[in-house]
Design a protein around this nucleic acid. Structure first.
Lengths: 237, 237
DNA sequence: ACCTGAACACCGTTCAAGT
DNA sequence: ACCTGAACACCGTTCAAGT
């Protein structure tokens, strides 16, 4: 954060870098300071190495970020299939996903924004598909149900944990709060009435990220609604 | 794309820039080349101006991107409330949102990743809340239902339209396709059987973005499932 | 194979002047 | 108020050597 092109210090002799230590250090930076702070140069400094040395372990910064994200996904432990009915397994799975994303909120937005195609995610895909099959889905409807579940789940959580850009000043928050508090009840009758419950607690009327202000009840409702809708779809085949 | 710090050409005399023309030019760059290509310097060159001249109209690059995104949201025309029952209005609204995002796929991921709090979005909030109220929701359950609907909608579409980083080479696509085609049916029985329908057509088993390969049926199912679940929740009060 | 050292071609943003 | 011109402090990535 001070000098330029900071050299690796002579002390702390680097004994051969390692791909997994690179990824661990990268995740640490992301957790501590956000994805924007994960620069090749900052990571190199953390590892006491010249920036270009990292290219022995990583294709590019963009690829690195993807690896960090899929590394987090890989640490997710799925619920035991034998412990739940298919619908309750999907509920439990959804909550585990969200819990894991809340452990690393700065990378959650990336997991949503990535195509995120890595073979390491396939066991998760298999288990979700098999639960839905257990629920009676098959063929094209199985795929649609899968996409409905996964898209809503990943999307919801990454929206919950979305961030303002780092540089933004805090002034707009109070401005926005003031605007919400002084809404015209004639043009916004429903919103004005619901404002005590909506204030900083609903999408498009909040100013804090889900990291600061988690939307627990809203997520539980979303999952409940989703699974209920899926059950109806399954029974209506 | 060639020279450095390209000067504005003497010809094409700049007659006083304008905030809205700045934002229009910014959106053009995003649509044509993606958010990463929207740099202050590229935008300045497009407008035949020095880069720092833009700071008369915009606080920062991050803020600019947010303005571009909310500018797109503002152009969305809501369905006529009198033309639909409350549940069908929510269905129609969801499809309009997705259509608008598909018009500007490169900014869709941002609308999901932003906190996106702008007073200009409040008319949308009001209409969604009033439809849900019409459906019988009130109080805390109204807020939860709203968050379920909005979070799933925004999230799903922004995941659908998510992109690989620009720099990534196309080699991984064929590698990934090969890996999917040669899955072990013993460890992935359900996935292997569904693969003909899942191949490049489901989250985590696709390699093309929704811009190239839209998931129309999956979205229709997701909305249907969501609304069905909401109706059940409303009737179970 | 892995790392150094230096360089290249970019960035966003700030500052001091001009008008 | 709005723009120029130049600079500052960064970037990711590449290249040529070293070992």
């Amino acid at each position: 954060v001070t000098g330029r092109t900071r050299k690796p210090t002579a002390s702390a002799p680097r004994t051969g870098l390692d791909r997994s230590t690179v990824l661990e250090a990268a995740l640490q930076i992301v957790d501590a300071s956000g994805v924007d702070a994960l620069t090749m140069r900052a990571l190199a400094q953390e590892l006491n190495v010249y920036p270009n040395a990292l290219y022995s372990y990583v294709d590019s910064r963009a690829h690195l970020i993807g690896e960090v994200a899929s590394g987090v996904i890989r640490t997710m432990v799925l619920p035991d299939p034998h412990a739940y009915e298919w619908d309750q397994w999907l509920v439990a799975c959804a909550h585990r996903w969200r819990d894991k994303m809340h452990e690393h909120p700065n990378i959650a937005a990336v997991t949503g924004t990535m195509l995120g195609t890595t073979t390491r995610a396939l066991p998760v895909v298999e288990r979700i598909l098999s639960s839905l099959t257990e629920g009676g889905f098959s063929g094209a409807q199985l795929v649609s149900a899968y996409n409905a579940y996964v898209g809503c789940l990943i999307g919801w959580v990454s929206v919950e944990l979305s961030h303002e850009p780092n540089s933004s000043n805090a002034a707009w928050k109070t401005d926005f709060a003031d605007a919400l508090d002084s809404l015209d009840p004639n043009t916004f009758p429903t919103l004005a009435r619901a404002m005590p419950l909506m204030r900083n607690a609903a999408f498009m009327t909040r100013w804090d990220s889900g990291e600061i202000r988690p939307l627990d009840d809203a997520f539980a409702t979303a999952v409940e609604v989703l699974i209920r809708g899926l059950k109806h779809l399954a029974s209506a085949r």
